[in-house]
Design a protein around this nucleic acid. Structure first.
Lengths: 246, 246
DNA sequence: GGGGAGAGATGCCGC
DNA sequence: GCGGCATTTCTCCCC
C-alpha cells in the first residue's frame, strides 16, 4: 500500500516530467461529457499518458470503463484521507473525477516510441487485390478505379464487365451485413440517377455474408462473391513463430 | 531497469496468482489472427488481466496498438538477453508474440471489482424518454412499444399518430448519418410489405443530423425531430463537482 | 472541423 | 454460436 501524500507528490511530479503513469487503486469514478456515468468503488488501474490520454481499467475486459482522449489536463489533490484525481477537457466539455481511498501501487517512466503498426488484411488490401486481379470478380471485368471518393460516394472498386455494363464492387474484410447491402444499393441508385442509365450491376465481395443480407442482396438483383482478404505478413509471421517455438 | 530473469519469474508468478500485471518495456510486437500486424521496437506498456485480456499501449493515444480479448493464455520465456511474451487464443486462432529487450518496471496486484458502470444519455434512454413523453414527437402520438426486436428489425419506438397511421421512430443519441436514414427506410419498407399497407410514417429523432442525411430523409418523405438524449446523472454529477472544487 | 465509412472495431442482447 | 445494432465508439481521409 502506498501512502496517499506520497502518491499525490509522485503523480504531480510524473505529470510535470511528462512520464507515463500507472496507478492501481480502490476508487469511485464520475464522468460527464457526451454522456454521464458513475462507477461505484472498486479496484482499478489508472493510466495517464504524456499526451493527456487517461484510461481507467477494471480487472476484467478489453475496453476501459472510463477514459479521456488525448488533450486532457490532469490535477491531483488530497483531502481527508482520500486522493482526488481530476481529468478535464474544457474544449470538448468532458470531465472525469476520481476519488481514491487506497493506492496499491504507483509507477511512472519516460517512454519513447515513434513506431507505427504495420497492418495487413484490411478492406483496402482487399480492393487493391481485386483491382490487380480482376478475374477474382469474373472473367472480363475491367476495373477503372479503387478506393475512390466519387460524387456517388466512396466506392471500393468501380469498373465495366465484359459487356461494358457498369459494375460497383463493395468489399468487406469480414462479414457483410445489412448495412453493406444498403450501402451498395445507395451507390448503384445514385449512379443510375446521375448517369441516367437503368442497368448498373452491384457486387459484394467478402469472406462471409449473413443469410438475411444475402437474401436482401439477391432480392434487389445484386450479386455476391466469396473472397478472402490477403494477409501479406502471414508467411513472415510464420517464419517469426518458428523463432518463438523452441 | 529490471533484470530480465527476475521479470520472467515475477510475471509467471503473477499469472499463476491471477493478479493484474503491468509491465513497461522496450519491445517488438507480432500479431496474427483476423488480420496480421507487426509493430517495430519501441517503449510500451503491457497489461495482462486475470481474465486473459492483454493490452499493449504506446505512450500516445487512446486505443491499444495490439490486444487480445478475454480468454487468451499467456506464457513467458527468456532467451539470449530477451524476454519473450506469448499470448494465444487457439479457439479464435489469434496470436501475439512479443520480444522485449529492456524492462523498465514491473508491477502486479490482486484487484477486486464487481461494480458496473451506470451510464445515462444512451440511445435506450432516449427511446425510454420518448415512450414516456410521446408529445416530444408530436401531439396525439401513441407509442406501442420501444426497443423491440420485431420480425421487421430492431425498432426503437413504434406507434400510431392521431390519425392512426403507423409511425416508426429511429433514435440516434448524437449525429444521425446516412446509415440511420437507410435503416429507417428498411423498417418502413418491410412493415409496408408485411402488413400490405401503403402509408407508414418514418421519423428520425436525434440532437443533430448531417445535411446530406436530412436531404435523403425528406426526399423519401420521412421526418426529422431535434431531440436531445436525457442525462439523469447531470444534477448528481454537478453536486459532486462542487465537492471537488475546493 | 464536419461528413462519410472502415475497424483485428467492441459490447450487448436475442434467438 | 451467429445476427443485428449501439457505441462517451475510434480512426482515417477528404471536403
Amino acid at each position: 500500500m502506498i501512502n496517499l501524500s506520497y502518491a499525490h507528490y509522485k503523480i504531480e511530479e510524473a505529470i510535470e516530467k511528462k512520464e507515463c503513469i500507472i496507478i492501481a487503486c480502490k476508487c469511485e469514478v464520475w464522468y460527464s461529457g457526451r454522456a454521464e456515468s458513475f462507477t461505484p468503488e472498486g479496484d482499478r488501474i489508472l493510466i495517464i499518458k504524456p499526451d493527456g490520454t487517461f484510461l481507467i481499467h477494471q480487472p476484467k475486459g478489453n475496453a476501459p470503463v472510463n477514459y479521456m482522449k488525448e488533450g486532457a489536463i490532469h490535477s491531483v489533490s488530497k483531502h481527508e484521507n482520500c486522493l482526488f484525481i481530476n481529468s478535464s477537457d474544457v474544449y470538448k466539455k468532458e470531465y472525469i473525477d476520481i476519488k481514491a481511498t487506497q493506492v496499491y501501487f504507483f509507477q511512472s517512466h519516460l517512454l519513447e516510441d515513434n513506431q507505427k503498426i504495420q497492418l495487413s488484411g484490411s478492406e483496402k488490401d482487399m480492393s487493391d487485390m481485386i483491382y490487380n486481379k480482376p478475374e477474382l470478380i469474373e472473367k472480363g471485368f475491367k476495373p477503372l478505379s479503387r478506393e475512390e471518393h466519387t460524387k456517388y460516394g466512396f466506392i471500393d472498386v468501380f469498373g465495366y464487365d465484359k459487356d461494358n455494363i457498369l459494375v460497383v464492387v463493395e468489399c468487406k474484410r469480414y462479414n457483410a451485413d445489412l448495412g453493406a447491402v444498403t450501402q451498395l444499393r445507395r451507390y448503384v441508385e445514385k449512379i443510375k440517377e446521375a448517369k441516367g442509365i437503368h442497368r448498373v450491376r452491384g457486387i459484394i465481395a467478402s469472406p462471409k455474408i449473413s443469410p438475411n443480407s444475402l437474401k436482401m442482396l439477391t432480392d434487389w438483383g445484386f450479386e455476391y462473391r466469396a473472397i478472402n482478404p490477403p494477409k501479406y505478413l502471414e508467411r513472415y509471421n510464420n517464419d517469426q513463430k518458428s523463432i518463438f517455438d523452441f
